[in-house]
Write a protein that binds this DNA or RNA. Structure first.
Lengths: 346, 346
DNA sequence: CTGAAAGCGCTTACAG
DNA sequence: CTGAAAGCGCTTACAG
């Protein structure tokens, strides 16, 4: 069935041993340059392809990295995680590695089953992309393999993680709103859903504190249920002048909600998002938001997992990747910095 | 360095040979049920994981499928191809397989280099997702491995392919426009860019022919340059009443173009798209379009490649996956079915 | 500079 | 029902 060429075939053809072929093809010492050249030439002619499984079995490395994405995220925000995965695949290539994408089904997450990439030793390390349940984090900890969390973190910080600097990004963009005269600013997001949403909330909160603004319960608007499904956003009776949304997609949803109630962005209220994904440019007007540096996150994740493979004791802790604000047209400068718009200078 | 448990370790612990362990773990005949149970129990206790590389080397199968996406597509329409890839990964899992995503760089495509997944024998088959150059198709043909094309095809049909029924989908949606009274209908797309765009054009063209409408050059509007980068769409002097766009993203671009010139959809002109991707619901009003059945395409591709692995001579030819029209609000019923709007019934 | 030997972890006949 | 032997394709000491 398999008509595959092996090193032995090349060796027979050239009239040397397979050891010499192995050395030549891997540019190891101990083979004359002439012979190396000849062996390589014959290898190409014969259409030789390395059997990576045989190599793997020798040095105990699969040269694959598993990327585990909880399935419940892939519907919601697929473009983001898939774009991250794509970048991971590109960076992995620079190290001679490949990426294996595995969706973690809700069922496996529930049952605390190991992913098949792990139980079949298909990978040398695992990048977990997107928050998993507390219980499943324990399962991951039990995996005897280098692993890192990407785009979320474990509260006990026992596993290295790489995250967007959510806190600082939200802090900065809230500052920006305040500089534009906003004083009554709501935050949109279920802060118990993911650590990202919570951290962004805290950045927003810090900005409020620093500017002497008081946070009230009515300013926290829920955007999704416990299972992550989006719900209709309930606007407070007294409308805020600005909304900090935990992500662009939610900002997009908010736009629709506002529009259906007759509010115009940014004339009636300003809106900012987070991520700078496709939704940010598809709203009208386009969204001022915090751009997440996907390429840098993927690059850092790959570098980190590679370091752990060569040195399993290596710890990098929590690495923050800075985002940057992208200014568009969803924020309006308010003339009056006071809350009473009726006694403004007119 | 590696503290990995092997079958031998289990065998020692239980007091049998590694052959018996292998049989037990694989549920092969020739081991008493009692012993099987005991071996499996010990395996779990010891945290045993199969070494898939060792298995691979035995049966010559890697249990991986390579998915090759030309990099130039990933920027343009990433969400589509990445979503297809995701579905492929899911279906592959049912067969005990994994997917390895490989981006084909413009450089490799130019140089006609084999992808690394091939030259390192990392995969048992290759799914090429997205059109590659004619020259590179030859390179792919030279790969000694089962392979299929997904979402495009080779003109000589020497390699099996799975595509959306572009022709029929475009034909149907154009018929729909005509039923709504449209007679002056433009097609938006560079018909030399990909076979999909061309086939959709031909479906549109067939619909025109069947309804006795004449196609004129001015009705074919270019949307991208030779390298696939979007360009500004040049509207004809005499405005058509409807536009068939080769994809939703281009429809989205067209909306913007129309809007900047003061035209409203669908009041001033109707627009339809293709794909039913994220752009279709983000336009306002949302787009009537042809939904591509991503799940079915991925499922068919995986099934086909699996068949080829077990039987390399298996041929499936060109498989069409039917789409379906999703009706939204971008098409207006025209009162007058004639071309002279001045003598309509009023 | 070149090669015979051993071994990575598993599975497949084959023998008992 | 159980196991000793051989082998998959490669690489790593080691010997010459």
């Amino acid at each position: 069935m398999k008509s595959n060429i092996t090193m032995k075939d090349i060796a027979n053809k050239v009239g040397v041993s397979s050891v010499t072929v192995s050395k030549a093809l891997n540019d190891k010492e101990g083979v004359s340059d002439n012979l190396k050249l000849k062996i390589k030439k014959v290898a190409v002619e014969m259409g030789y392809r390395m059997n990576s499984a045989a190599k793997s079995i020798k040095d105990g490395l699969s040269y694959n990295i598993g990327v585990l994405i909880p399935q419940r995220f892939t519907g919601m925000n697929d473009s983001f995680y898939l774009r991250v995965y794509q970048q991971i695949a590109i960076h992995l290539d620079h190290y001679g590695y490949f990426g294996i994408l595995t969706l973690l089904s809700a069922e496996d997450e529930e049952k605390l089953s190991f992913p098949r990439v792990y139980s079949e030793s298909k990978v040398d390390g695992i990048i977990v992309l997107g928050q998993v349940s507390k219980e499943y984090i324990e399962t991951i900890k039990n995996m005897d393999l280098p692993k890192i969390f990407l785009d979320f973190y474990d509260e006990h910080a026992e596993i290295d993680s790489i995250i967007t600097d959510n806190f600082y990004g939200a802090y900065e963009i809230t500052n920006y709103l305040i500089r534009h005269g906003h004083r009554d600013i709501a935050y949109v997001g279920n802060i118990y859903a993911t650590s990202s949403i919570q951290d962004r909330f805290l950045g927003y909160y810090k900005s409020l504190l620093e500017h002497g603004l008081t946070f009230e319960e009515r300013l926290l608007l829920n955007d999704r249920d416990e299972r992550g499904a989006f719900i209709d956003i309930q606007l407070p009776d007294k409308m805020p002048t600005a909304f900090v949304c935990n992500c662009d997609q939610v900002a997009f949803n908010l736009y629709e909600q506002l529009s259906s109630l007759g509010y115009q962005v940014p004339t009636d209220c300003s809106v900012v998002g987070f991520d700078n994904d496709v939704y940010a440019t598809l709203t009208s007007p386009p969204l001022t938001t915090v751009e997440v540096d996907i390429d840098q996150m993927a690059r850092t994740a790959v570098k980190s997992i590679m370091e752990k493979i060569s040195n399993p004791n290596r710890r990098n802790g929590r690495v923050l990747v800075q985002g940057k604000i992208i200014y568009r047209e969803s924020v309006q400068q308010l003339d009056s910095p006071s809350e009473n718009s009726d006694n403004s200078q007119a």
